[in-house]
Nucleic acid binder design. Structure first.
Lengths: 233, 233
DNA sequence: CACTGTTGTGAACGATTGTTTACCTCAGTG
DNA sequence: CACTGAGGTAAACAATCGTTCACAACAGTG
C-alpha cells in the first residue's frame, strides 16, 4: 500500500474535474507539443480527454465512447485519427515520456556540473514533471503495462534508460566520495529505484487545488533523495 | 514513472506462472487464513486465482470467466460464493490488509521499544509483506480504487490509519531527538508517505525467482527509511 | 428412505465492448 | 464548376461482459 492516496484520493483520483472543462490542462500538455508533430486539433483533444479519463478510471475501464463523447464526437470519428485504442495509448505514453525526458534534460543542462547538483536537478525535474501534469504522469506510470507486446517492450527499454541515467549519476557521485550509497557503488541502481519509486507516486495523491506549489514539494523530495544517496553534509 | 518495473516487469508483471499450478501461493495466502472465517475451499481457490489474475492483468481486464476457468469451474458457480465481482474484490482487499496489518503488529510487538527500533520493525514487516506475496500486495495497492463507493471509502480509512501509525512513530522519534525529519516534527506524515511509497512499489518489480531473499531486500529498505527519517548514526 | 441444502452445470439475458461500414458535409483546388 | 480528401454521423457488427435461471448431482440428516 502506498496510502498517500489516502491523503487526497477522493479529490485527486476520484472527483477530478472533467477534462472537457479545463482547457489549461489541454493547452499545457497537448495543444503546442512539438513531438506530436502533425496531429490535428481533434486528435490532440482526443489525447487530452483520454489522459483525464485514464487517470480517473484506468485505461481498461475507459471506452472509446467515453473518450469521444467527452470531445462531443461520435465513436466513429475516433478512427479517423487513430488506428485503434492501443495506438492511442501508445501515442499518449510516448508523448508523456517525451515531455518528462525533455524536462529532465533541460534541467540538467541548466544546472551546475558534478554528481550532486546534477542528481538534484534530475530529481527536481522528475518530481515537478509528475506534479504539473499528474494525469499524463499516471498514464505513463501504470497504463503502459497494457500495451500490445511490441509496444510494451519498447516503452520498457525507454524507462530503463531513464533509470540508468540516474544510476550513473549516483555511481559517479559514489566514486567521487560525494555520495555514500547504501550498498556501495554497486548499489547505485537499487538506490535509483528507491528514488524513482518514491518520487513517481506523488502524481497519485497530489492535489493541485489545496496542496503547496510543485516547486516546494519537489524541493522536499530533492532533500529526501540526497539523504537516500548519503550525500555528505 | 517508477522504472523498477523495467527491471523485471516481464518476469514479474507479465509472465508470472498461472496460479493454478502454484499451490504454495494458495496455501500461504488463503488456505489457512483465520480472517477468511467460514469461507469454503472453493471460495478460497477463487480468491487465490483472482489475486494472480488481477496482479497480471488488473481487475478491470479480468473477467469472471477467467477466474472460474482458472479453477476448473463454470461462471455460474462463482455466484454460489460471492454476490458480485465487486464483493470478491472487497474480500480480497480486506484480506490483504488484514494480513499486512497483522504482520506489522506482530513485528512491532516482538521488537524493542523506542521510536527507532519500532520504525525499523514497521518498515521491515511492511516490505516483507509486499515481497512474500506480491500478488496480494499489488491488489490492495491499486485495485481498491475500483471498489464501489461505500467500500472504497472504508478501505481508504483503513489505509490512512496504517500510515498514521508510522507517522506517529516518526513524530515521537523527532520529539525524542532520535530522528531529524526533513520538515521538522510537523513533516512526519509527509516522510511517512515517502517511506510507504518507496517500499510499496517493491511488489511491482520483485522477482522471487532471481532476486535476493526478502529479508535481505527488506533490510536495505530499513536502512533507506532510517536515512529518510534522519536517524542519528 | 425421503428430504433438504449446498455446489455445481449449461444456457441464456441484456448491456457494453472495440471496430467497421455506408453515407453525408464541406473547404480547397485545378 | 467538378472533384477530391478530410472529418464527421448513424447504424450495425461480432465478441465479451457481469449476472441470472432452471436444473442436476450428491452428501448429510431426520
Amino acid at each position: 500500500m502506498d496510502d498517500n492516496d489516502t491523503v487526497s484520493s477522493e479529490s485527486a483520483a476520484r472527483s477530478v474535474a472533467v477534462s472537457r472543462g479545463d482547457p489549461r490542462v489541454f493547452e499545457r500538455a497537448f495543444a503546442d507539443a512539438p513531438d506530436l508533430g502533425e496531429l490535428s486539433y481533434a486528435a490532440r483533444r482526443l489525447l487530452s480527454a483520454s489522459a483525464s479519463l485514464f487517470f480517473r478510471n484506468g485505461a481498461a475501464a475507459t471506452s472509446i465512447r467515453d473518450i469521444t463523447s467527452a470531445c462531443g464526437l461520435t465513436p466513429g470519428a475516433f478512427y479517423k485519427h487513430f488506428d485503434s485504442k492501443d495506438e492511442l495509448l501508445y501515442v499518449l505514453v510516448q508523448h508523456g515520456h517525451e515531455r518528462l525526458e525533455r524536462r529532465i534534460g533541460d534541467a540538467m543542462d541548466e544546472s551546475a556540473d558534478g554528481p550532486l547538483p546534477q542528481t538534484a536537478a534530475f530529481v527536481r525535474a522528475y518530481v515537478t514533471g509528475h506534479l504539473v501534469n499528474p494525469e499524463l504522469a499516471q498514464v505513463i506510470r501504470r497504463e503502459y503495462l497494457h500495451l500490445s507486446h511490441r509496444r510494451y517492450t519498447e516503452i520498457v527499454r525507454r524507462r530503463r534508460q531513464l533509470r540508468q541515467r540516474l544510476a550513473d549519476l549516483l555511481r559517479r557521485g559514489s566514486d567521487a566520495g560525494v555520495f555514500d550509497l547504501i550498498d556501495g557503488p554497486d548499489g547505485a541502481t537499487r538506490v535509483a529505484v528507491m528514488m524513482l519509486d518514491m518520487c513517481s507516486r506523488t502524481s497519485e495523491w497530489y492535489d493541485p487545488q489545496r496542496a503547496e506549489p510543485p516547486h516546494r514539494l519537489a524541493q522536499r523530495y530533492v532533500v529526501a533523495a540526497l539523504r537516500l544517496a548519503g550525500a555528505s553534509g
